[in-house]
Design a protein around this nucleic acid. Sequence first.
DNA 1: AGAACCTTGACACGCCTCTGGTAAGGTTGC
DNA 2: GCAACCTTACCAGAGGCGTGTCAAGGTTCT
Lengths: 126, 126
Amino acid sequence: MAGNDALTIHEAAETTGWSPRMLRYVERSELVVPERSQSGYRLYGPAELQRLRTLRELLERFEVGLSEIGFALRMRRDTDLREAVEEWFEAEPRRPEHVDAADWMRWEQEKHQRLLNTQLMETSPR
Amino acid sequence: MAGNDALTIHEAAETTGWSPRMLRYVERSELVVPERSQSGYRLYGPAELQRLRTLRELLERFEVGLSEIGFALRMRRDTDLREAVEEWFEAEPRRPEHVDAADWMRWEQEKHQRLLNTQLMETSPR
DNA sequence: AGAACCTTGACACGCCTCTGGTAAGGTTGC
DNA sequence: GCAACCTTACCAGAGGCGTGTCAAGGTTCT
């Protein structure tokens, strides 16, 4: 393997700061999947090494876990999922369009009512 | 509270399929945060109920967890995080720009070499 | 005033994530 | 051929997630 710039798992571990154990784990999460030699050895090229280093930085900087980046990957690959999640968030700023308009206005109205009650009760409680 | 269409936690639980316990949990994850009455009771309006129902569907349909949607929310709110994650993914299709071009070409070349070796060895193994 | 709600906080349990090992066996370099 | 690597497959332990339940105490309805 010498002379080639593809690193074995232990070498890659040393230069990226991951443990060999974790490199296998990262592979299973599909975030960094190295090539394999003919006999099945993992071969980490410059691109993988770089990705591993930046991944590490990413995780540390934002205190996120592999599974979370894994989920981001899943959203990026699964269009249905991505769209469903986005759609759910879009409905966030109150007044989601699925809600009947009349219901909504009654709700808004009564919110003010409630607030009013609140104020009143604060001066003359129960 | 009667006459108002804001539901208490147990009522909301019944119409949405969540347990009261889980509604508190969902609130803690910041995904659906109900208003509060003056005395601190949670008040679920039509919008919240709808959001709870669709959230449930989302989780079931894609077999994701609350924490994962919570992470999506975090990405949506934290621009730095979102951009960092996206940037990491952008570098995915091999040949990340941080890698030295000469390194890259040598790597690509040797990849073909490796593949060639593989084929040869498959016909005359060992 | 009492029943029937609500609140927060805690303990608990099963499952998953992350991380480290270890064992049994194949590959490579010298 | 032997040392030093690699592989997969397990066991294990700390910590987080999802969920229930219970306790101690406040609120609301009648």
